[in-house]
């Protein structure tokens, strides 16, 4: 979306209102925070997204201390059991408990997502801030490079990496992380440019601050909310990519359980135990849906101007 053109179309009075609102937020930080939570709890997609995301996070944390059965012990004698009191969702072809696999799978999913988004955030935001601060050929170079990275979707770079370095979690994290960088570069640079054009940056410069200090003290805090929203959505994309890569055998390797891998195993047994293919996919969909709703909700809550658009 061309956010810059949209911003320029806003009438001055709304910009002024925006400025006043920011001021008010600064003056009474705690009041603003409680206001945020009051609005948040009334926001339907935010609440639903938060509940779903917490569910997945809770599953991952729970798996660290407790799973109904071990997710690693193979017990072929009790393979492909239907759901029962002992195995709530049954067992897979190696006799592993599905609930335990799903819980531990949540952990791998979140881990890959966090690291990949971390890579994207640190490189992407850094490069985006540099592009906005330095302008000129530096900006041109960074933007061309990020345009160009779009030509390599995560699956494609994972394939290249897997071809030389072998498949594995590191391969998939690296590939997904690299794929995340250009999006963060674009978002950061776009919103940072808008901040650089504001009067308070001019004032800061008049006060003798250099571009590095302005970036850290003025630009970054002001684009933080946009970055949080973007990171939430990128997290969802990372989960989808991780699932696809594990499904293809390029990501998380057995015996480490992962949702994508479970789907791959289940596909060979579609006629025998179709439900095995349903649970892991549903888990992925819940995680992604939760994060997407959370991101949408956060965007509405952190930037009320955009709320009207939807």
């Amino acid at each position: 979306m061309p956010s810059s053109t949209r911003a320029s179309r806003w009438p001055t009075c709304e910009r002024a209102a925006d400025r006043i609102r920011r001021h008010r937020g600064n003056r009474t930080g705690r009041a603003a925070a409680t206001g945020f939570w009051r609005r948040a709890l009334r926001h339907r997609s935010f609440v639903l997204g938060a509940v779903l995301s917490l569910l997945v996070l809770g599953a991952a944390l729970l798996s660290l201390v407790w799973t109904p059965w071990s997710a690693y012990d193979i017990d072929v004698a009790s393979k492909l059991h239907p759901p029962s009191a002992a195995h709530w969702l049954g067992t897979d072809v190696l006799g592993r408990d599905i609930v335990s696999l799903l819980l531990v799978g949540a952990r791998s999913t979140i881990m890959v997502g966090v690291i990949a988004v971390g890579i994207g955030l640190s490189f992407g935001v850094g490069l985006g801030l540099i592009a906005a601060a330095r302008k000129g050929w530096t900006e041109e170079l960074i933007m061309r490079m990020s345009d160009f990275t779009f030509a390599f979707p995560a699956v494609l770079s994972a394939i290249m990496l897997a071809a030389v370095a072998g498949p594995g979690m590191v391969t998939s994290i690296t590939a997904i992380g690299i794929f995340q960088i250009p999006t963060f570069v674009r978002v950061t640079r776009g919103s940072a440019n808008a901040i650089w054009a504001r009067e308070f940056v001019l004032a800061a410069r008049a006060a003798g601050k250099g571009s590095f200090r302005i970036t850290i003290e003025h630009v970054l805090p002001n684009i933080l909310s946009i970055l949080i929203v973007q990171a939430t959505i990128q997290f969802a994309l990372a989960i989808l990519a991780e699932a696809a890569l594990s499904y293809l055998g390029l990501g998380t390797q057995p015996p480490q359980p992962s949702w994508g891998r479970m789907l791959n195993d289940a596909q060979t047994l579609l006629f025998q135990s179709p439900m095995l293919a349903v649970y892991p996919g549903a888990a992925i969909a819940i995680a992604v849906l939760g994060l997407n709703l959370l991101g949408d909700g956060l965007r509405d809550l952190l930037d009320p101007r955009l709320a009207r658009e939807r």
Binding site: A243, A244, V278, I284
Partner: peptide, 22 residues
């Protein structure tokens, strides 16, 4: 559409196989 965006395409493919083939 919100649900559609959250579906992994390969899982949706498996569900389609379950429905139309199995």
């Amino acid at each position: 559409t919100q649900v559609g965006i959250a579906l992994p395409n390969f899982w949706f493919a498996i569900l389609l196989i379950l429905l139309f083939s199995v």
